[in-house]
Design a protein around this nucleic acid. Structure first.
Lengths: 199, 199
DNA sequence: CCTAGATTGGACTGAGTGGTCCAACCATAA
DNA sequence: TTATGGTTGGACCACTCAGTCCAATCTAGG
């Protein structure tokens, strides 16, 4: 159904599309662009993807993979206060490096696609879910270990933290100021520590 | 330079453009659409606006006006805990009414435009600033009245709260669940109340 | 009334756009 | 070797888009 060569072509196309969406926005990506960058012809695009919308939807998944990969080594250690602190610091550092450009790749796509493409909305929800799950599980572990109050709700805490990250990144992007994320994450940290149980 | 009739035409165009941007996204709005909905001809569009980009930039301001107007009567009373609670409740109620659709009009535009149109980014920053200022001033008043700790920073508290609103609205929109905003705002409220001074 | 300038209609252009189609190519398995 | 099916190139189409242009029509002030 798909030879090794075909698989490689498909991934080249997807990679090129993901790059172009990141550079020009979802609406700014054209199939001509994708063809040129990936070295694939028109018929190849339509051989491996139903239409433009499906390509965009797959770009969402690829983008989610990239976002999670960029946090690799930190998402797995959200089961301690130190691990969470390192994670927050890394998120801010990344924005400093990027000069507060780009915001959250997933969040940006959400603003562009969530409202007008139901399939994309679901893919974005799945992406956020994958991300949030790491924190939820880390907090659950902390609760089991007695580091969080017995009545703490890891799911709600994780959601509130994700909201702070997304909102902080949005303000960072619009204001071109990484401190916006820093402020949002300081508040998120304080909010988590309200549930702290001291040894 | 601009007669009363001309002014009216200009505003009809702007209004139509703002509606279309809200409905179809910034990239989905075409000048043909705007012309049809506003009853204005091609040359009128270019008579009153330099080009498409300028029209979009003005749409940002109109959208900000609408967002602030929708909160009229609440933004002026963010100088008490009760006023802030009513504001948060109203924001959540609005999302329930809208079935969690649309997200924040300004935040959505940010995701669509902030990265690729510098002028739009500035307009969006100005919009957020107008919004945030209400809260910052309310909190400043509360601090002066001794309702907030002496070392509280109204500016940072306002920013953290705006981040919670934006992040909560984004998650609400993507997950089609108004509870996401509720959770984010509960955390924001708790974060503010950490600075509370009891009478 | 006259005129300068604001306002309007609408045809037109040229550069994309997503999508279709068909013939050719190539690998593999019988 | 042959046949099946994945793979590829690229012309082509109908359409939409932002932007231009010019002539016609109002409107306010002298």
């Amino acid at each position: 159904m798909l030879t090794k060569k075909g698989q490689a072509t498909r991934e080249r196309i997807l990679q090129a599309a993901a790059e172009l969406v990141a550079e020009k926005g979802a609406a700014g990506m054209s199939l001509d662009d994708v063809g040129e960058r990936s070295g694939a012809s028109r018929s190849q695009l339509y051989h491996y993807f139903d239409d433009r919308d499906e390509l965009v939807r797959e770009v969402i998944d690829v983008t989610t993979d990239a976002v999670l990969a960029a946090q690799d080594g930190q998402l797995e250690h959200l089961d301690s206060w130190a691990g969470i602190d390192r994670w927050f610091d890394a998120l801010v550092d990344l924005q400093v490096d990027r000069q507060a450009r780009g915001g959250c790749p997933i969040g940006s796509l959400a603003g562009q696609l969530a409202e007008h493409d139901p399939g994309a909305r679901k893919a974005l929800a799945a992406g956020f879910e994958r991300w949030e799950q790491y924190l939820r599980e880390g907090l659950t572990t902390m609760k089991e270990r007695g580091k969080l109050r017995r009545d703490a709700d890891p799911a709600e805490l994780a959601t509130a933290t994700m909201a702070a990250i997304q909102g902080g990144l949005l303000l960072t992007q619009v204001r071109r100021d990484p401190q916006q994320l820093r402020i949002a994450l300081d508040a998120a940290r304080a909010n988590l520590k309200r549930e702290r149980v001291r040894a």
